[in-house]
Every structure is written in structure tokens, then in C-alpha cells.
């Protein structure tokens, strides 16, 4: 009989703990996502062949 309130308390605490995990901003994942998008937008993968100099010369 005595256990119920404790169980409830614990579960509340644990649940609260669960919820906070989701709220933190996933900085590392965001960096990874940003890098993937930047790779695509700036075409950093294909940009290695020497097309840049002629492109950059004309304003």
C-alpha cells in the first residue's frame, strides 16, 4: 500500500527525465545535417575539378 505513491513519484520523475531528453537541441546531428546540405548547395564534392578559377574570374 505504501509503495504506490513512491512508484508514482518515481515514474513521474522518470517520465520527466524522458521528456527532457527530447528537448535538448541535438547539436552534433544538426552539424551533420548542415554539412550535408552545405555539401549539396555548394557542390563541394564535385567542385574539386578545376572549374572554379575560370568561374571566379568573371564577376
Amino acid at each position: 500500500m505504501n509503495r504506490m505513491p513512491i512508484a508514482l513519484l518515481c515514474s513521474a520523475a522518470l517520465l520527466a527525465g524522458c521528456v527532457t531528453i527530447n528537448i535538448y537541441f541535438p547539436a552534433a546531428a544538426a552539424e551533420k545535417a548542415a554539412d550535408r546540405i552545405i555539401d549539396g548547395v555548394w557542390q563541394l564534392q564535385q567542385d574539386k575539378p578545376a572549374t572554379a578559377p575560370s568561374e571566379g574570374a568573371k564577376p
Binding site: R3, A7, C10, S11, L14, L15, G17, C18, I21, N22, P26, A28, A29, A30, K32, A33, R36, I37
Partner: peptide, 26 residues
């Protein structure tokens, strides 16, 4: 106590789900 364990398990599941989601949807 069983209930507590279950809740803890559930918590772990949610937590691991949250951690497992290491990639952002883009």
C-alpha cells in the same frame, strides 16, 4: 514494483529512441 519497472523500461525505450535519432530529418 512491476509497474515501476515497466515504466522505467518504457522510459529507456523512449530515451534510446531519442538518442538513436542522431540524424536530423532533412
Amino acid at each position: 514494483m512491476k509497474r515501476l519497472q515497466r515504466i522505467a523500461m518504457l522510459c529507456l525505450l523512449i530515451a534510446s529512441a531519442a538518442w538513436a535519432q542522431s540524424n536530423l530529418e532533412i
